[in-house]
Design a protein around this nucleic acid. Structure first.
Lengths: 137, 137
DNA sequence: ATAGTGTTTCCAGTTACTGGAAGGTCAAGC
DNA sequence: GCTTGACCTTCCAGTAACTGGAAACACTAT
């Protein structure tokens, strides 16, 4: 399987497939006589695994860990659960931040007449710290 | 006001303050005889404006636009509202994505016993596309 | 005079790719 | 056998928005 077939099967751009091998996230594939990368089903399964982990928002570094666990037939499910739970916490935190951001901005958009006059509570709020969004933590 | 005083007043790292002038987001400040950057209250107000817009998640490019509107005494509030509303849409979209991600991952974490046995639905799901997260759009 | 802190510029690194140029390879068609 | 076009290779550069660090100059206090 050449790179474009493998990348289609994995659902990743060919560039990304090359990149993942470059950074050592997945093993470098075998090469044909002329230097073409040659993929088998096991490589594709790993690429799919990585793609899906990335879609879940795991970082490359976390994907490295997860791939290690994926390949280790003797690891405990607790190891995996620990990483996934940490990620879940991050998602929940991001959700809370987005929620308050959304509420504040929606309030401002609501208060703005949006007509051709210059008076605008959105701009006022950005310029005036007393009525803007929370400070970053 | 030297850069560290200004950066404290604006709530931004000095590095970032320099960076914002380097990329032309805010005007380059005056210099002292020895070359130190010298800030006045108007500069600090602009830096605060940018910091708060960034905290709202506006990109640097959007901050550029907003700063233009901030400085234009004759712009209509509709111009501002349009940018803010677009940003609000993005936030809402991100929220929906995070929500489904959270639900799916929470479901998996819940299903994983997290003990010392290797069997783990989280890893299984990553390896098996039929029970993983949605495809990216 | 010296120590310590503040400031300057510049270069490099971060994350996770993505775009593009220059050139080699392969299969089909004539 | 030759050309065309698709596919493949490497390498370099750029993205967003900073952040870290080195080397050197400035200011203040003792």
């Amino acid at each position: 399987m050449n790179i474009s077939a493998a990348s289609k099967a994995a659902g990743l751009p060919a560039k990304t497939v090359r990149y993942y091998a470059d950074i050592g996230l997945v093993p470098a594939p075998a090469r044909s006589e002329s230097g073409y990368r040659s993929y088998d089903n096991a490589s594709v399964r790993k690429l799919i695994f990585v793609r899906r982990a990335r879609e879940f928002g795991f970082s490359i570094s976390e994907c490295r860990d997860l791939l290690g666990l994926y390949e280790d037939r003797r690891r405990s499910s607790a190891d995996v659960k620990r990483i996934a739970t940490a990620r879940l916490e991050e998602i929940a935190k991001k959700q809370r931040e987005l929620q308050s951001l959304h509420d504040e901005l929606a309030h401002l958009v609501d208060a703005c007449r949006g007509d051709d006059r210059p008076d605008c509570p959105i701009i006022d709020s950005l310029g005036n710290p007393r009525r803007g969004p929370r400070q970053a933590p």
